[in-house]
Every structure is written in structure tokens, then in C-alpha cells.
Design a protein around this nucleic acid. Structure first.
Length: 819
RNA sequence: GCGGGCGUAGCCGAAUUGGUACAGGCGCACGGCUUAGGACCGUGUGGCGCAAGCCAUGGAGGUUCGAGUCCUCUCGCCCGCACCA
């Protein structure tokens, strides 16, 4: 093969050329091709907030390397990209600087695309999706209407989280550690009419199907399961003295004989009905105080429990005792029924409350019947033990008690077994401008009227007046607000709320399968060909929000027969973040490294390989500028080895035979292939470095650039294809390769070449390493033992003791056990 | 508090899942090339010991022919969730 020598590796001189070549060759331009297996490779699309830095690129480099690898493995690879382009930052910037959101967003997209290009990160740009463009958001609106039609979108007055800084409501999922996920402000509660998606209707399936996601990280599944928060228990009705009843949810019906008082949330609607005249003033004062508390203060475990007596009493249906009803903010209005039966003996929160307000504490569970009256100095909360002081149920185990008491309540018609979830419906209304307008109108005669499908899109006006008070400018854009009812033609008003941007990102992966469809959100045939996403790669910060919402969407669309699979992402990988100088690489910390800087100093390939080599991809990693130098040295070395002429021979170095080189090549192919399949890019890079080191040793020892050598060079070149793609193309061309290396098949392991004629057997005596002996591969135990016993080291250690037995691991180790 | 995970050289980290502990990179040392270099190239590099060897995977036990890997206890760190009845 004709080789063209080159004096030095000059990345800046070669990289742009190959970017053009890939674009011309249509890398990642794909159609539904049944002759090849499909592979849908996806990285989470970004919000275009400004220039990218090398921290962002870890995700894109991993995704790009994997996509290129799959191309080389012969897959029909869909590898699209887009922009989650609606959102608050662009709007806030517009308020500050007057630059319209579309202008700044498009500017940021252009910059980012350039940066992806120079790093050699390519996508199916012919399928690019931008969520703020009309040809995308009209279909987001279309899907909203579909949800409405299916009864999965509804408007309701509710106490919702309001962020005073961002001037909008937030979904439950967007309250992180008690504060707004975006700006860190403590939210307040507001009573507002808002749009919701009925995600709770899918709670059980979202939980059950986590089991199907065996190629998702365990911790993401655990986080989602906890978020959904299924609890099995029972609802029990307690009659209120004089009038009505109070329903509670409990996971421990077995403790009902220990319920010595009840507690209801301050927001509970029954409060006003039951409060007695004597307690009215105290109760009103208490409710007023709890309202002024922020959510974070109220939910804190350190928060000292407070409460007030309502004056009313209920009857415990099992003990028939008269028990007081208290109002306390440690009971949440939004969980269960907003009311509890308090069992201070067996619930630490109730215990604390009972102590403070001198309420009776009774033991109804004990380790044994005999210990039934032992005093309690803290709540006793085990799931084993026996029921005591529990009337006819005394003596039952906790497990049986739960079943028998629940069944008894059912029979008496005062309760039923039930399941509760923590998951709340998804609040999707946002009182903000830069988002998808919710496509409904309000008619004085017809109420809420959905905009007919054929009138979509409801265009977001772009000529609006931003306001310094943070109010949604749509409210004041008359041309937008004023419309006519599509049913009766009378004047009507448009909804001015826009949708949570997480709605946009809940279906973008479907739009990629037919990005320019002008007639529907996506084509079922195409979606069926490509879905599910085979490999999804992105940040752990989306463990709940985006990933849960997308799963919900997929299930709704599955039920609507619009898609044929009900989970969107078959495999998920969450990469760690890159730190530098002690902080996560971020624009705000000023510790980012610009891709341009990287390319100018080292070339894109060094940046790419460094990000793959930096550490286990799922873990955070510290950026080390010297480490980048090390990778640059590695690539320069590969260049010299593959394209160099003759090297200086240094005598006296360990002999490396051509067959050793060939074997190492195949071992490397084997290792790199397995590592890449398992997303262990760091060890894949180490393996390539090892091969390079052996190539160096070979030449140092006077090895010739013969056929075996050439084969190793070509194998190395192909393996570099996904990781250092520009360098690989250049090496491929200079070695006389045809076409592009990215379209070459990934090298195959020749199992015959992996076998060694000789193996090093570790010889242990009583488990301690005593010698290493070269033996023929496949040697049996008796022969290996024979050889091992000849070792002088072994003989000295064994002395005159008898070798009682030997443990033999074929071709690896023999352990001689004495005595 | 509950759940998940981690602890290996001076640093980042490997270790076919119970079988040679520390691959690869950084750093460091020495050598080469250089007028010179914090550049480049190469070699070496866990600790103690003259050596045979011994000691080393946060700590203490245990199981095993054999433990970084499994079990028990313990210390430390990280990440979720957090008054969810």
C-alpha cells in the first residue's frame, strides 16, 4: 500500500478538510432502510444559552463517538440534534437588553453550531429541530389539543407554587430543595386557575415500566420510583361528633387502636365547618401564620411542629373513643386526604406532637403480648411485632393486623384498601411570553374553546412590548388577546399562558423521525421504524423532570395508537460533569475552556480524546491541563508511528516479535470493542495507548515495518475513527485507504490470533505468589503442577512439607496447598 | 432520618467480576536532542530491605487454597429524597 509520509501532525491543517468531506459524503444523512439494522443515537438537546465550553462537550463527544462507532459497525444510524429554544433566559435578556428572544436565540444557535463543527461533532442536520419555530410548536399545540381531547389536559383552580422572581407558576418537579429550580427563589403559594396534564393517571404504569428499563442507571430508576411514591394502605372514615365524617389515609391500619387524636392540614376544606366558636380566633390566627411561612420552612424536618385544637371531636370507629381534632401544618393538604389519624405511639411525628400538646400516647404494637404495657419513650415503628391493646385484633402480627383491620373496615363500610402516590398532576401553565401559546380561547358563551386543529398554529407574536414589571407581555398585546370564538364567532379572548418548556422536550425525539412533516407531528411508519431511542445520553439533572415527562408522553401516544412502543428510551447513559479549578465548568465560574481555544492550541481530536480519557464517563472528572498535553503526545506519537519512515534503533530493549504485535492488535480490538459497547471510553483510550506503546517498543527493538506492522497501523487507524476522526481520516488516506475511514467496517477480532502459544502461569504456595513460569497454553493440571514443583523458589518455600493438593485455574494460576 | 453509591500510588484512575493489586495518563527522576527551554523523544518510577523476602486497596474481624472484589462491625466522603401519614 502506498504511504505518504508527512513530517509532523498538524491538526489545524487537516481538520477543516475532513469536516467538509463528511458533510459532502452525507455522514448521518439517513432514511428508513430495511437492509440494515437501525440505531437511534440521541444526546439531550441543549437550551441555546450562549457559547458552549468543553464541559458541555463531554456529552456531545461521547454521543458523536458512539454514533460513528455504530456507523462503522454497519448500523443505519439516526443521530439528530436540535434546540430546546423556548425558555426564560432569552426572555429575561430581552427585558434587560431589548434584544428580541428570537434574535438572541438564533445567534446562540449559530455560535453553537460552529463550535460543534470545529470539534468534528456531526449530526443529521437535515432533521434539525428548533422548538421555538412555528413548524415545531404548531405540533406541540396539536399534541396539547390531543391531550385535551383525551381528557388528559384540564384547567383547575389550585394552590400552586409561584416564583415571585420569575413571575410564573412552577410544576412540583421544578421545586428543587424547596426553591425555584431556575433562580433559587423561595416560591409562594397562590390560588390560580391553571392548566394541568393528568400524569397521575399514568402513575402506576410509569412505576411498573421502570422494570423494563434494565439499561437505565439504577439510581435514575430509584429516583423516579421515589418521586412517584406509591404507598399501599387504607382510607378510614372517622365520624365527626354531631356532623359529617373525616376521611384519612394510613399505611398502618393495624395501629388504629392507638389513634388518640386526629390532625388535618390548615388548608383542609373541612376546617371552617368543624371549628367551634370558642376556638375560632385561635384557629384563624394559626392559619394566618402558616400562610406566611414559606414552603421550605414548613417542610423542613427541623421545623418545630405547631398546631391548634379545632374544638371538635371525632369518634375512633374501632375504639369508639372520642378523640380531639387538631389542625397542624405538618400534615400536607396535597397528600393522601389531607388528614391523618395520629398514632403517637407508633409514628415519630405524631409522638413529637403529642408530647408537645400533652395528648395521650398508647402502645398498640409490641415485641410480644407479654410486653403490652411497656412505656414508650419514643415512637415504636417496626413492621414486625404483635398487636396489643387492640380489642379483637390483639395478638395478631403486624402483617396480619394490617390485612384484617382493613378488611374489617371494608365490611363495616367505613373504609377501603387503597393506594396513594406522591406524584401530582403536571402543572404546565406559565405566565411567561417566550413559550408555546396554549391553544384555547375563552368565549363568554362557550367557556373554554379549543382552537380547532386546522387553525394551528396559534402564532406567538414577536412584535411585543416587554415590561419591566415582569408581566407577560401577551396580556397587553391586544392583537393577540382579542379573537373570535370558533364556535359562535363572537368576540373572545385568547389564553395568554404559555406551556412549560418541558412539554416541548417531551416529544422532540419523535419529531426527529420526520422533521419536516407539514401534515402531522410525526409519521407513524417512520416513528415505528426508528423508535425507541436505542441510546440516550445526557445529564443526570434530568433524572426526574424530562425523563419522566417524556415517558408519560410516550405512553399517552401509545394508548392513542400514534406509536407502537410505550417507552421512549431503551438505554440511558448519564455522563458526569467536568470540573476545573474546584468548580463545575460553567460560564458563571469563568473556568470554561472554549472549543475554539482547544482547537487552536491542540486540535479537535486532542480535545475529544481527552474528554473520553478523562475518567469513567458516568463520574464527575477534574480537567487537568497537563493531562491534555499527555493526550496530544499520544496522538503525535500515533502519527509518527503510522506515517514515519525508519526510527532510530536502540539496542538492548526487550524483543518484540511481529506476532506479539499482531496479538496485541487483536487484544486491543477486543478490549476497545467491549469497552465502547459498555461506555467505558476511558479504558478504551488506555488500550489504544498500550498498543501504541508496544508499537514503539517493537521499533525500538529493531522491528521492521513489515506486513504485520502495516496491519497494526491500519487497525489502529480504524479504531481511532470514532474518537479522533480527523486524524484517523488523514492517516487512512496517507496509508492509501479508499474512501472515508468512518465508512470502513470496524475491525474484527481474529480469535485464533488472540491465543498465545505460551502462557505465564502464576505459581502460588498456600496462596502466596512464589513464581511465574512460562508454560505451553492449554497445559493440564498435572503437568502444570509438575513444572511448578521444579521451581527453585517453590522448592525452597515448600521445604519438606507435603503438597496436599493443588488449585488450578487453566492458563492462569496454580496454587499448591501444603500440610 | 430513609434510599443509592464510593474509599486503591504524590494526583486522576485500571483490575477478565473470587485468581499476578496498581494498566493508561499526570507528576517525579535519569538520559537523549538542543545555544537554551516549564518544548520534544526515550527509560525508570508503591513502601521497607544488601538480599531472600516482607508490608500495602479507609480501619477491625470473618469466609476461602486464594479477598480490592463476598460477609459482619466501624470510620469518612458524595449524591438523591426528605414531616408523603
Amino acid at each position: 500500500m502506498a504511504r505518504t509520509a508527512a513530517p509532523v501532525y498538524d491538526p489545524q491543517a487537516i481538520e477543516p478538510k475532513w469536516l467538509d468531506a463528511w458533510k459532502k459524503a452525507g455522514l448521518f444523512r439517513v432514511t428508513e432502510d430495511s437492509s440494515k439494522p437501525k440505531f437511534y443515537n440521541l444526546v439531550m438537546f441543549p437550551y441555546p444559552s450562549g457559547p458552549l465550553h468543553m464541559g458541555h462537550f463531554r456529552n456531545y463527544v461521547i454521543g458523536d463517538a458512539f454514533a460513528r462507532y455504530k456507523v462503522m459497525r454497519g448500523f443505519n444510524v439516526l443521530n439528530p440534534f436540535g434546540w430546546d429554544a423556548f425558555g426564560l433566559p432569552a426572555e429575561n435578556a430581552a427585558i434587560k437588553s431589548g434584544i428580541p428572544p428570537r434574535v438572541s436565540t438564533e445567534g446562540n444557535i449559530a455560535i453553537s453550531k460552529h463550535e460543534l463543527d470545529i470539534m468534528g461533532v456531526l449530526y443529521a442536520w437535515d432533521r434539525e429541530v428548533t422548538t421555538c419555530n412555528e413548524d415545531y410548536y404548531r405540533w406541540t399545540q396539536w399534541l396539547f389539543l390531543k391531550f385535551l381531547e383525551l381528557g388528559l389536559a384540564y384547567k383547575q383552580k389550585a394552590a400552586v407554587n409561584w416564583c415571585p422572581k420569575d413571575n410564573t407558576v412552577l410544576a412540583n418537579e421544578q421545586i428543587v430543595n424547596g426553591v425555584c429550580w431556575r433562580c433559587g427563589t423561595k416560591p409562594t403559594k397562590k390560588e390560580l386557575e391553571q392548566w394541568f396534564f393528568r400524569i397521575t393517571a399514568y402513575a402506576q404504569r410509569l412505576l411498573d415500566d421502570l422494570k423494563k428499563l434494565d439499561r437505565w442507571p439504577e439510581r435514575v430508576r430509584v429516583m423516579q420510583a421515589n418521586w412517584i411514591g406509591r404507598s399501599e394502605g387504607a382510607e378510614l372514615d372517622f365520624f365527626i361528633e354531631h356532623d359529617g365524617k373525616l376521611r384519612v389515609f394510613t399505611t398502618r391500619p393495624d395501629t388504629v387502636f392507638g389513634a388518640t387524636f386526629m390532625v388535618i392540614a390548615p388548608e383542609h376544606e373541612i376546617v371552617q365547618k368543624i371549628v367551634t366558636p370558642e376556638q375560632r380566633a385561635a384557629v384563624d390566627g394559626y392559619i394566618e401564620r402558616t400562610k406566611s411561612e414559606t414552603e421550605i420552612e414548613r417542610l423542613s424536618t427541623e421545623h418545630v411542629k405547631t398546631g391548634v385544637f379545632s374544638g371538635a371531636y371525632a369518634i375512633n370507629p374501632f375504639t369508639e373513643e372520642r378523640i380531639p381534632i387538631w389542625i397542624a401544618d405538618y400534615v400536607l393538604a396535597t397528600y393522601g386526604t389531607g388528614a391523618i389519624m395520629a398514632v403517637p405511639g407508633h409514628d415519630s411525628r405524631d409522638f413529637e406532637f403529642a408530647r408537645k400538646y400533652k395528648l395521650p400516647i398508647r402502645r398498640v404494637i409490641s415485641v410480644s403480648r407479654e410486653a403490652s404495657n411497656e412505656p414508650l419513650d419514643s415512637a415504636y415503628e417496626p413492621y414486625e411485632g404483635v398487636l396489643v391493646n387492640s380489642g379483637p385484633f390483639t395478638g395478631l402480627s403486624v402483617k396480619d393486623g394490617i390485612q384484617r383491620i382493613a378488611a374489617d373496615a371494608e365490611r363495616k363500610g367505613i373504609g377501603r384498601r387503597t393506594v396513594t402516590y406522591r406524584l401530582r398532576d403536571w402543572l404546565i401553565s406559565r405566565q411567561r411570553y417566550w413559550g408555546v401559546p396554549i391553544p384555547v380561547i375563552y368565549c363568554p358563551d362557550h367557556g373554554i374553546v379549543p382552537v380547532p386543529y386546522d387553525q394551528l398554529p396559534v402564532r406567538l407574536p414577536e412584535n411585543v412590548q416587554f415590561r419591566s414589571d415582569g408581566q407577560n407581555p401577551l396580556l397587553h398585546t391586544e392583537s393577540f388577546v382579542n379573537t373570535t370564538c370558533s364556535t359562535c364567532g363572537k368576540p373572545a379572548r385568547r389564553e395568554t399562558d404559555t406551556m412549560d418548556t418541558f412539554v416541548d422536550s417531551s416529544w422532540y425525539f419523535l419529531r426527529y423521525t420526520g422533521a419536516h412533516d407539514q401534515t402531522q407531528p410525526f409519521d407513524k411508519t417512520k416513528a415505528d421504524y426508528w423508535m425507541p431511542v436505542d441510546q440516550y445520553t445526557g445529564g443526570i439533572e434530568h433524572a426526574i423532570l424530562h425523563l419522566l415527562y417524556s415517558r408519560f408522553f410516550m405512553k399517552v401516544l401509545f394508548d392513542a395508537k400514534m406509536v407502537s412502543v410505550d417507552e421512549p428510551f431503551a438505554a440511558l447513559f448519564t455522563q458526569g460533569m467536568i470540573h476545573r479549578n474546584g468548580y463545575v465548568m460553567a460560564k458563571s465560574k469563568g473556568n470554561g475552556i472554549a472549543p475554539d481555544e482547544m482547537v487552536e492550541k491542540y486540535g479537535a481530536d486532542t480535545g475529544r480524546v481527552y474528554e473520553l480519557f478523562i475518567g469513567p464517563p458516568e463520574m464527575d472528572a477534574e480537567w487537568n491541563d497537563r493531562g491534555v498535553d499527555g493526550v496530544a503526545r499520544f496522538l503525535h506519537r500515533v502519527w509518527r508511528l503510522v506515517l514515519g519512515e525508519e526510527d532510530d534503533v536502540v539496542a538492548g530493549v526487550v524483543q518484540v516479535l511481529p506476532e506479539d504485535l499482531t496479538r496485541k492488535l487483536h487484544e486491543t480490538i477486543d478490549k476497545v470493542t467491549k469497552d465502547v459497547e459498555a461506555f467505558r471510553f476511558n479504558t478504551a483510550m488506555s488500550a489504544l495507548m498500550e498498543l501504541t506503546n508496544l508499537m514503539q517498543d517493537y521499533l525500538q527493538a529493531g522491528g521492521r515495518r513489515d506486513e504485520a506492522w502495516e496491519a497494526v497501523c491500519l487497525g489502529m487507524t480504524r479504531m481511532l475513527g470514532p474518537f479522533a476522526p480527523h486524524l484517523a481520516e488523514e492517516l487512512w488516506q496517507r496509508q492509501g485507504g479508499e474512501g472515508l475511514v468512518v465508512f470502513q467496517p470496524w475491525p474484527e477480532v481474529d480469535a485464533a490470533l488472540l491465543r498465545r502459544p505460551q502462557v505465564t502461569i502464576v505459581v502460588q504456595v498456600d496462596g502466596r505468589l512464589r513464581d511465574r513460569i512460562e508454560m505451553p497454553a492449554g497445559i493440564d493440571q498435572a503437568a502444570a503442577r509438575e513444572l511448578a514443583l521444579r521451581s527453585q523458589n517453590v522448592q525452597r518455600v515448600v521445604g519438606d512439607r507435603r503438597v496436599q493438593r493443588a488449585v488450578y485455574v487453566p492458563d492462569r494460576l496454580i496454587n499448591l496447598v501444603t500440610q
